[in-house]
Nucleic acid binder design. Sequence first.
DNA 1: CATTTGCGGATTGTCAACAATCCTGCAATG
DNA 2: CATTGCAGGATTGTTGACAATCCGCAAATG
Lengths: 223, 223
Amino acid sequence: MPPTPPFQRVHRESTASVITRQLREGIMYGTLAPGTQLTESGLAAEFGVSRGPLREAMQRLVQEGIVRSEPNRGLFVKELDEDEIRDLYTARAAVETAAGRLIIRDDDGSAVTALRQACAAMQSAAETGELAALSDADLHFHEVLVTASGSRRLQRMHQTLMVETRMCLTALQGTYRAPEDQVAEHRRIAEAIAAGDLNELLQAVESHMYEALDRLLSTTEPA
Amino acid sequence: MPPTPPFQRVHRESTASVITRQLREGIMYGTLAPGTQLTESGLAAEFGVSRGPLREAMQRLVQEGIVRSEPNRGLFVKELDEDEIRDLYTARAAVETAAGRLIIRDDDGSAVTALRQACAAMQSAAETGELAALSDADLHFHEVLVTASGSRRLQRMHQTLMVETRMCLTALQGTYRAPEDQVAEHRRIAEAIAAGDLNELLQAVESHMYEALDRLLSTTEPA
DNA sequence: CATTTGCGGATTGTCAACAATCCTGCAATG
DNA sequence: CATTGCAGGATTGTTGACAATCCGCAAATG
């Protein structure tokens, strides 16, 4: 065989994958509001494909949990009530805590560097006052955290959870808070990991999620 | 409306769901060995359905991560190499630890009772020497643990992980160890939760997973 | 007037056939 | 002898059409 062929394998994305991704983004950023019915024939026409591939994409989204299927009725964008949001952040705490533990156990220093960089990015976004950028940097931090753990399964789980998180943020735009605090919370997580302090990590993640939850649910209708 | 109609709502399971479940079980218990190709036409004929529903079932399994899809080539039962197994148990530790934490935080006592019952079931299976029953009771314990946490997302994640766990156990039948130790490890987890001792819980789960991993990987080809 | 009953429209569920793609083996070629 | 080109067979990818199911609404009924 040729010694280290410098080409990367071509991989054409399947139609269903493309559709899945597009729909997912639409749901994430609110183009497809929660509760919206996703009619197969309509969407198939929009994407310019048959109903077959589209149905496959739907199956994936259903299995991901961001689309709800009512048999013989239709598919709907899942709505997140208060309990669901609570559960979402519980699950996030679980995954991100585990990721932090793995980093503490295995890291050679690169993970901590990446986390501090992510914090710095948040910091500069906070200073310039760009809230959209700050929000992106926020999510990016958590992505870095879980990616750096090296666990594919944690990454997969987290990806799904982040889609739902983005759904929440999109639905409730305008829940501002002091950007400095926001940065500080993340820095606390990063430094807990850097210090290898497990208990501090647990508390940092938990309180971070609790803060976010509190912020989200206070704006929701209290009914 | 009639006062409390004594009938429960009928809900027919979709064909894709039935097929998904059957295939999943087949994979779990080794009827479909890792690496096996799952040909659509063949399976469709076996199930007596068209390829449409079967493809949908496949999509679900792919998204669950227990079936691998090679475009234009086919679908294959996913094989678990050493790193995958390590990652699997890492993820399990993450989920079950989180479940335990939730129980410590929220439980009214019923969860602890259920866990102790599960331990008792293991104990009696260990005493009578029925290894199959012991294995079932083992898995049942972990199911109870996560179910009692009350988090739907943790449950969903765990379900997938347990399918893969069962795959491992099926593939490597005959990795025996002292049943008493096996029971003891679970009891340690249950009692850590009962005592509300977080650090003990973390260590109990971690060492339990580490034991299981060690047992699994020692029998694998060391290549 | 309240309840039931049947119809119309729309959507999902299923199917069988067609097109595109890929692997296998063999023969042709240098 | 290694490589290339080319059918043959098989499998997946896609499509459009048909059947089954469900909802909403209006007419019929007591």
